[in-house]
Design a protein around this nucleic acid. Structure first.
Lengths: 227, 227
DNA sequence: TGTACATCAGTGAACGCGCGTTCACTGATGTAC
DNA sequence: TGTACATCAGTGAACGCGCGTTCACTGATGTAC
C-alpha cells in the first residue's frame, strides 16, 4: 500500500466527477450551465471546494475542451485500428461517417470545440491545439494512403497554400504529399459544414434523411478528388 | 403633418437604436453582451423602458436574428442584381464569395444565425425560417441557371432525398429540377463548413491564405457538379 | 510503533456584481369633440 | 381653437435570482523521525 497514491487516486476521481458533472450540465442547459456553483450543487459540494481542483472556471473549460478533442480522436483511432485491413478509401469513408456520428452523439462536446466561442472565455491555444491536431493528422494519414491508391493523381495544390501546408506537414512530422494535406483540409472543412448545419438544426427543415445527404456528399467529395 | 405618424417614426427610430446597440454589444462581448440592462445602459435609458419596444429579451433576440438573415439576403440580392449579365456559373461563384465575405465582415450576425444556439433561447421557427430561406432560394435560383448551361447533366438525386427536396421546391414555389436543389444544399453546406471553421479560428493555425483556400474549394466543388 | 508536523479537502460566510422583470408613477404627445 | 381625455415613453425602486472568487477555519489524511 502506498497511501500517497491512494490520495492521488482520490483526487483524480473527484476531478473526473467534476468534469463529468460539467458535461452533464452542458448537455442539459448548454454552455450557460457551465458554472462553478451549478457543478458544486450537483456534486453536493460547496463551490469553493472546486478550487482545489481547478484554478478557476476558465481552467475547467480548457480541460473540458482538451478532453473533448481527445475523446473524438480516441474514438476515431480505436475504430480505425479495428479496420486496418479495409481499403484506404473505405477507411476514409468510415472515418468521415464516424466523425459525423460522434458529433451527433456528443453534441455538447462537439459544440464546445467547434461551436461559437464561449463568451468571456479565450482558449489558450497551446493547451488545446495538440489535441485538436490529432484528428486532423488521422484524417491526413488515411487520406495519404487513399490518394496513393486512387485512380487520379493527387490534386494540384494551389500555390498560395503551399507554404502553409508544408509548415503543417513538417510541424506534424507527416510524410505525405502536400496534395494529400490539401485534400484533407478541404474535405474535412466541407463535411464539417454539413455536420454543423445539422447539429444546429438548419438542415432539419430541409432534409429528412440527413444521413443519406451526408453520405452522398462524402462520396461525391471523395470522387472529386479521385478517391 | 400627421402627428400620429411622427410618433410612429419616433418609435421606430428608438427601436432601431435598441437593435443597433444590441449588435454593437454583441460585437464587443459576444452573445453574453446581449442583455436588456446593458443595452439600456448604452442608450442611457432605464431598463424597463425597453419593454415598450420588446416584450422581453427573447423577442429582441428573435428580431436580431430575423434582421441578420434579411441583411445577408439583401446584400447578396443587391450584388447580384448589379451583375445579371454575368454568366450564371460566374454569378454562382460571385454569390459564394460574397457569402463568405459577408460572414467575415459581420461575424456577430453570422454567429447569431449559424453559430451555437444561445443558451436559454429557443428561436421561434416561424419567425426566422422565411428570412433564412431567402438566401437559400437565391442560391437555388442561380444554381438552376448555372446547371442548365453546364457541360454535365444535372447530378442524380439520391432516392432518399427526393421527397424532402420536392417538398422544399414546392413550398418555395421554385421551378427547378431537383438536382439543382440537391446541388444547392450540398454546395452551400460545404462552403459553409469552410466559413464556420475560419470564423471560429480553426483554420488560422493551418492556412494563412484562407481566401485562396476558400476560392479553390468553391471552384473544385462547382467543377464536381459540372458547373 | 508512536508522535509531531505538514499537506490537503472541504466548509460557511461574505464580497460585489449583473441579470430579467414587475410595479406604480409622472409627464409629454396625440386625439376627439 | 380649446379643452378633456387616452395613449404612450420613460423613471425609480424593488423583487429574487445566480454568479466567481476570497478568506479564515476545521478536520482528516499522510509523512518523517
Amino acid at each position: 500500500m502506498t497511501p500517497r497514491i491512494r490520495r492521488d487516486d482520490q483526487h483524480q476521481a473527484v476531478l473526473d466527477a467534476i468534469k463529468q458533472a460539467a458535461r452533464n450540465l452542458m448537455a442539459e442547459k448548454g454552455t450557460a450551465g457551465l458554472s462553478i456553483r451549478a457543478i458544486a450543487r450537483r456534486l453536493e459540494m460547496t463551490p469553493p471546494a472546486l478550487y482545489h481542483y481547478f484554478a478557476n472556471l476558465d481552467a475547467l473549460i480548457t480541460a473540458l475542451i482538451a478532453d473533448a478533442y481527445h475523446a473524438l480522436a480516441d474514438t476515431l483511432e480505436a475504430a480505425l485500428a479495428d479496420q486496418c485491413d479495409l481499403a484506404p478509401a473505405d477507411q476514409l469513408r468510415l472515418l468521415m461517417r464516424l466523425y459525423r456520428e460522434w458529433a451527433l452523439a456528443h453534441p455538447t462536446d462537439f459544440t464546445l470545440i467547434y461551436g461559437s466561442p464561449i463568451p468571456g472565455y479565450q482558449a489558450p491555444v497551446e493547451a488545446t491545439l495538440p489535441a485538436a491536431r490529432r484528428t486532423l493528422t488521422l484524417f491526413a494519414t488515411i487520406s495519404g494512403s487513399a490518394l496513393q491508391q486512387g485512380a487520379a493523381p493527387v490534386a494540384d495544390v494551389p500555390a498560395p497554400l503551399r507554404d502553409s501546408l508544408a509548415a503543417v506537414r513538417d510541424h506534424e512530422g507527416l510524410d505525405l504529399p502536400l496534395g494529400a494535406l490539401y485534400f484533407t483540409i478541404v474535405g474535412w472543412s466541407q463535411i464539417h459544414g454539413l455536420i454543423m448545419l445539422e447539429l444546429f438544426n438548419h438542415l432539419q427543415p430541409l432534409i429528412d434523411d440527413r444521413a443519406a445527404l451526408y453520405h452522398h456528399a462524402v462520396d461525391r467529395m471523395l470522387l472529386s478528388f479521385g478517391v
